[in-house]
């Protein structure tokens, strides 16, 4: 029985689609440049000129929000992908071959997990600089261990199943078994998990931006925008609240989509 996905799922999809359109189309929309300062309007409320108002130094919030979405989405999409790809490689190798490769990989993951995340990020920023690629890579590396653990657990689970034995019995070699039998099955739950990680990474990037560790000013990022709005929080709360709301809705949507897909996959699993 396929459960019908609720309205919240489709609203979430619509929101993500909207954010993506805005991020991609930010350059083509009739908006002021995100770093163009309008000295006449400092921290004004939304009006006809500035759709979502301006921030404390007179920059258009709508423009900054749309360009900032590029940062959030880039990090949110690419970092989990890095985690997924490298995590799967490590996890599948560990789970399929067991023995010493497994001990080395699991040991390395445990060591990595013992390093405080914020410390790792600070060191990474220090070493790689604070550009978008560096942030994406650093956050991506942080995702690798959990993906690797999941891939390993799933690989072990499937490697013992009879259909894998059956493939071996027909003469398939290790590569064919991993690629055709194990990986497609192990990947399904990991993709759903990647969506969850996406929300987590967007928030993490926001946190870095808030600390001034994300893309360097004056380039916009949602976390940075929230931080800039702090100074005028009493007078003009919308300066912080609009990017905060955008981030909140985006993360919520990503999580709801993930839940929807997971429910769908559980239904399929339960039919097995």
């Amino acid at each position: 029985m396929v459960k019908k996905r609720g309205i919240t799922f489709w609203l979430s999809v619509a929101w993500i689609a909207l954010v993506m359109t805005c991020a991609v189309g930010a350059g083509f929309l009739p908006l002021p440049a995100p770093d163009q300062i309008d000295w006449a309007c400092l921290a004004t409320s939304p009006d006809g000129v500035h759709l979502l108002g301006t921030d404390n130094v007179g920059r258009d919030i709508a423009a900054r929000l749309f360009f900032g979405a590029r940062v959030s989405l880039t990090v949110g999409v690419i970092a989990p992908c890095i985690g997924l790809v490298f995590g799967s490689l490590l996890g599948v190798a560990a789970g399929f071959y067991r023995g010493w490769p497994e001990r080395v990989i699991v040991g390395a993951i445990d060591v990595f997990l013992a390093v405080p995340r914020l410390v790792f990020l600070l060191v990474a920023m220090f070493v790689f600089g604070s550009g978008l690629p560096a942030i994406t890579l650093a956050l991506g590396l942080l995702c690798v261990p959990s993906f690797a653990r999941m891939a390993r657990a799933n690989t072990i689970r499937f490697a013992g199943r009879e259909f894998v034995l059956a493939a071996r019995a027909t003469g398939a070699d290790d590569v064919a078994i991993v690629l055709r039998e194990i990986l497609p099955n192990a990947l399904m739950p990991m993709v759903a998990y990647a969506l969850l990680v996406m929300g987590y990474v967007i928030v993490a990037e926001g946190g870095l931006g808030f600390l001034g560790l994300s893309v360097p000013a004056p380039a916009p990022s949602w976390g940075g925008m929230i931080a800039e709005g702090r100074e005028v929080l009493e007078r003009a709360p919308h300066v912080s609240m609009i990017p905060a709301a955008a981030m909140f809705l985006t993360v919520l949507s990503v999580n709801l989509i993930g839940d929807g897909l997971r429910g769908w996959m559980d239904d399929r699993e339960s039919q097995l």
Partner: peptide, 30 residues
């Protein structure tokens, strides 16, 4: 592996011995 085509096996649990996400025809063909 080259010789495996000459001896084949059928397993106890018919559903578990097929890859759950493959179409059954593809499992046969593979």
């Amino acid at each position: 592996r080259a010789l495996r085509s000459r001896f084949q096996m059928i397993f106890q649990d018919p559903i578990a011995s097929l890859n759950p996400i493959r179409r059954v025809g593809e499992s046969i063909e593979a």
